[in-house]
Every structure is written in structure tokens, then in C-alpha cells.
Design a binder for these strands. Sequence first.
DNA 1: CCTTGAATCTGTAGTTACTACAGGATACAC
DNA 2: GTGTATCCTGTAGTAACTACAGATTCAAGG
Lengths: 133, 133
Amino acid sequence: MTKSLPIGELARKSEVNIETIRFYEKQGILPDPARTESGRRIYDQDDVKRLSFIHRCRGLGFSLKEIESLLSLVDDGDYTCKEVREITASHAQDVKQKISALRKMESVLDAMVERCGKGDVPECPIIEELFGS
Amino acid sequence: MTKSLPIGELARKSEVNIETIRFYEKQGILPDPARTESGRRIYDQDDVKRLSFIHRCRGLGFSLKEIESLLSLVDDGDYTCKEVREITASHAQDVKQKISALRKMESVLDAMVERCGKGDVPECPIIEELFGS
DNA sequence: CCTTGAATCTGTAGTTACTACAGGATACAC
DNA sequence: GTGTATCCTGTAGTAACTACAGATTCAAGG
């Protein structure tokens, strides 16, 4: 049996603040939770996972719509195999591009830290190095 | 000598739409451009690079404030070496975390595509696999 | 030249994804 | 049984766009 938790604890554990949780519920990205007698929301461990997932995805530049589309793969099997494959492949493509851009940025930033560490003053043509022609 | 371009061409080349360019200008993240006699904005190749950079950073989940902080490293050398190092290192840390999260997501998505490809129906505990305890 | 359509201008209003109250009810600790 | 911490609904504000409206300007064809 999983321990149930109030909204405040869910907020703390998932690092999403309370008003955002209620906002996600209104948007339908989080299911309507069970309530206590007095009307307070009750969550469980699965909600912590789902919400953490949403939170991280947002931090990675996915829109709520994209996240919904990812979550829909989990939520119900109302998709044909082909649809799942298409949706998933497209997200995977997107993720690969993000990774590649971040890798470039990482190497430039690391190089900058390195140079700064040596007391070198960088005039840093960072944009050039990252995304230059 | 660099070719100058109107806002429409800048928009096309940087994949940022026109109103967003003007919005960035108002926010001070893009410098006020030169103008023609009649008041039209004139840009050059550097603006294309800067704007593309901003665009990609946005897609990677950086806020405009964070992007400004990154760009400030390029814009002027009004920083001590220590400051540059600190700002840069903190961004680098951030980037590494994003990469690691995206790698996890990539491997799960790839695995899903693989399984779907074989006609297998996935009940996909994707959240679990990605960010499960 | 003159017109006509595409591109640009400023300014305002709408959208997405939060975030921050206000004002009130409930829980829980002493 | 009285604080005070947490929760409730609802509304308003913020960040980062996005989409017009209404006017001007440029550039190409007749």
C-alpha cells in the first residue's frame, strides 16, 4: 500500500510549486486527484513521478502539449503500434537534436572555464564557436 | 564588407519570427539596429548568429535572463576573470544536467521505437524508466 | 509616372505557462 | 479552544511570445 500525500508534500517532492500543480490539474495534464472529506487533494507516489517527469521535461524545453503527447503514450493504449512508433520516433529525433546542441555548448563552456581558470582573459567568441556558420 | 539585411530576411535566416525580433529588441536582448532613412531596421550577419543562438537556447529551456547572462560574457568585458568563471561554470553545470536527462529520455524513446518496430505492443512504463526512484 | 502588392512600421490585444495574492475553510499542536 | 500552518477557490499579474489593426514604404509591371 502506497502512502498518500497532501499537495504541499507533492510540491516539495516533485519540486513543482503548489499553484502550478493546481494549474496542471486545470489544464488536464494531471488527473483530478481524490479528495478528503473536506475537499483537500490526495496524491500518491505515482503522482510524484509523473509530476517530476513533467517538471524535468519543461526544463528541457518541451511544451506542455509535447509533454502531454509523451504522457499519452503511457496513459492509455488507444494508439496503434504505428502511431506510437511515429510519435516516439519524432520525440526521439527532437531529443537527439537537443543533446547535440547542448554538447556543443558544453564544450565551449568547459573551454571557457578552463581558460578563465588559468587567469587568461577570454574575449570569448562564444556564439561563433557554438553556432557560427 | 558584410551584406545588410531587412528584418524579414533576418527572421527567415534565424528562424525567429518578425514580431519576436522586435520583442527581443524591446527587451534589450537584441541591440537597437541601424535604420534606413525611412525608419526600417537594418541587420547584418552577426545579428543572424546572435539571434540563432538565442533561438536555440530557448529551445533548450534557457530563460531569456539566462541567455542574457550568457551573452553578456560575449558583449563586454566588464567582468573579472573570477566572475566569468563562476557564471560560465554554473551554466556548464546546468548544461551537463540537461544532457544527462535527455540521454535517459533518448535511450527510453529509442527502446520504444525498437519494440514498436517489431510489432510489439508496449505498455511503456516510460516515466518509471526515465525518472523512477 | 502610377498603381498595386509585398514588406515594414508602431501599437495593442491575445496566448501559454506559470506565479502571486486575497479571502476563507480546515487541520493539528499545544 | 486558540493559534498557526496548510489547504481551498478564484482572480490578477508576469514572462515570452504571437497575432492583428491601421498606416507607411518599397519595388516591379504597365
